[in-house]
Design a protein around this nucleic acid. Structure first.
Length: 334
DNA sequence: GTTCCACTGGAAGACTAGGTTT
DNA sequence: AAACCTAGTCTTCCAGTGGAAC
């Protein structure tokens, strides 16, 4: 049934992106000065999960590099490279300037200095999930260096601005903005049609099934394509010759549960205990969480560290924090 | 309205793991 | 082998916030 698995994978960038003409042009125009040798400006891209931010960024940068020889581009996933050091290393590595950097004996300053010494063509640096970056100094540095144009991808602008200091904030205020919105049902269906046409044998999926996927994905293209992928696999496993709405409904909850389980498994032990406590007892106040936590593990961390853990769990979308000060409680996200 | 205090989260520094240099 | 790095984690300290109790 599956003819070309690549087009169903996450991170696949199609030759043409659908329903995002305005956003494509907005980003392309913001980056245009770079191709004329003018200093690049920062771009802040906002929008909910699965609204095409990453895909459009990669697409625009790819087109830009086809148009002109004199542009480089590096993509950094800040979720996976959340420290300034790792993110800076990723960029240098991509530029082929990471030789002779020893992970433990080369200070971050040296990495930044090397970025500053970059004398090749100007470089667009896509910082995906930029709000996860711990050292925002790096954004400031990249923004200051004339050879780099940072593109910051975040869900919500406020989450980014909450994390940056005043000097960076004032710089970013003047930057270009490109805002993405959820796809509507018809848009998702046409995106899925494309992927089915490219990736599956002809007639492998019914229109009803595509509509069911689009409906279940609630505007999230990544989720929708994931459903298509899982449904195709499931159909292959069960020797079905076409994907129907029933196939979709069968894989939908399974995909969700799997994602959650993977998230929980990758959690360090102490954070896992905290999640369990909140899951069992929530809504629960932070003090009570700490007391139970201290009972349950040997060698508990301090309450300050636990607070950091809890806010990380909130970042991971595993917990939800309600209230701001004395009324704060945590609940597990269902 | 005032006071209290549980909670937040920034800052600085100690500590650890894991690497290099001598 | 020992001395010496650095990033990353955790602790210590603390000012600020704003519900809750009075």
């Amino acid at each position: 049934m599956i003819r070309d698995a690549r087009v169903l994978r996450e991170g696949f960038v199609p030759r043409e992106v659908r329903h995002r003409e305005g956003e494509v042009n907005g980003l392309a125009n913001a980056l245009r000065p770079l191709t004329r040798g003018d200093p690049g400006e920062a771009v802040v891209i906002t929008g909910p999960a699965g609204s095409g931010k990453t895909c459009v960024s990669r697409y625009v940068v790819d087109r830009l590099r086809e148009e002109t020889l004199d542009v480089e581009a590096q993509y950094v996933n800040c979720w996976r490279n959340h420290t300034g050091y790792r993110a800076a290393y990723r960029v240098l590595e991509g530029l082929g300037k990471a030789v002779e950097i020893h992970r433990q004996s080369t200070p971050l300053d040296e990495l930044v200095a090397r970025l500053g010494a970059h004398d090749g063509p100007p470089c667009v640096v896509i910082l995906d999930e930029a709000d996860q970056l711990e050292a925002m100094d790096l954004v400031y540095d990249l923004h200051s260096l004339s050879g780099f144009a940072p593109v910051l991808i975040v869900n919500r602008e406020e989450e980014l601005f909450a994390r940056v200091d005043d000097r960076l904030r004032s710089r970013l205020r003047g930057s270009h903005r490109v805002a993405f919105d959820r796809y509507d049902l018809d848009e998702l269906v046409s995106i899925l049609e494309d992927r089915a046409r490219w990736g599956l044998v002809e007639g492998a999926v019914t229109d009803d099934a595509l509509a069911a996927m689009a409906d279940a994905a609630a505007g999230d293209a990544r989720l929708a394509i994931g459903l298509l992928r899982n449904a195709a696999r499931d159909a292959e496993d069960r020797d079905l010759d076409r994907i129907t709405p029933e196939t979709v409904h069968a894989v939908e909850p399974q995909g969700r549960a799997e994602l959650r389980r993977k998230n929980l498994e990758s959690l360090p032990p102490h954070q896992h205990v905290l999640y369990e406590i909140v899951d069992e007892r929530g809504p629960i106040a932070p003090g009570a969480v700490y007391d139970r936590y201290a009972d349950r593990v040997e060698d508990p961390r301090t309450d300050r560290t636990v607070r950091t853990y809890l806010s990380k769990l909130v970042d991971y979308d595993l917990l939800e924090a309600r209230g701001t000060t004395r009324d704060r409680t945590y609940v597990a996200v269902s």
